[in-house]
Amino acid sequence: MESPIAAILETALYVDDLDAAERFYGGVLGLEKISRVGNRHIFYRCGPGVLLIFNPDETEKPAAADALPVPSHGGRGQGHVCFQLKDDDFAAMLDRLNENGIAIESDFLWPNGARSIYFRDPAGNSLECAEGKLWGL
């Protein structure tokens, strides 16, 4: 039976410092901010999907009676997200990271020939940029 799931619509990372995350994701990576709600979360457009950045201290709290019925949630520790680069433009991404003093932890080719680079956000989350062919896209 074929899955009815077509794609990942959103993914979330958890950080303790939303201001640092906003400077990194909006400034260094240049993602388009959709919204920020105080010290609770920041949402960014990321191609056809959305990257959610949450403060776990705030998302663990139960929703107010008059709020949307989204269950409380939260994560602790380092997470991982892989971004697909437009036109597989590693040079532009590496320039952006170098200009902002962001260290590359790894830069390599997978067995299928796809390239990946790995680096960290201010909260220690592992971020990857890869060619779409890594997953046959």
Rank of each mutant, 00 (worst) to 15 (best):
S3E: 08
I5W: 08
A6H: 14
A7D: 09
I8N: 14
A12K: 14
L13H: 00
Y14W: 07
Y14H: 04
V15L: 04
D17Y: 12
L18D: 01
L18G: 00
L18N: 00
A20I: 07
A20K: 03
A21D: 01
E22I: 15
R23L: 08
R23Q: 02
F24T: 05
L29C: 13
G30V: 10
L31W: 00
E32H: 13
K33N: 01
R36F: 06
V37M: 11
H41N: 12
I42Y: 03
Y44A: 02
Y44Q: 00
C46P: 02
G49R: 13
L51R: 00
L52S: 11
I53C: 05
I53T: 00
F54H: 07
N55G: 07
P56M: 08
E58S: 03
T59W: 13
T59Q: 05
E60T: 12
A64D: 06
V70T: 14
H73S: 02
H73D: 04
G74I: 06
G75I: 12
G79A: 14
H80Q: 10
H80L: 08
C82M: 05
A91F: 07
M93A: 15
D95S: 11
N98W: 11
E99N: 10
N100G: 00
I102Q: 01
E105K: 10
D107T: 09
D107S: 07
W110P: 02
A114D: 01
A114Y: 02
S116F: 09
R120E: 00
N125W: 07
L127E: 04
E128V: 10
E128F: 13
A130S: 08
L134T: 01
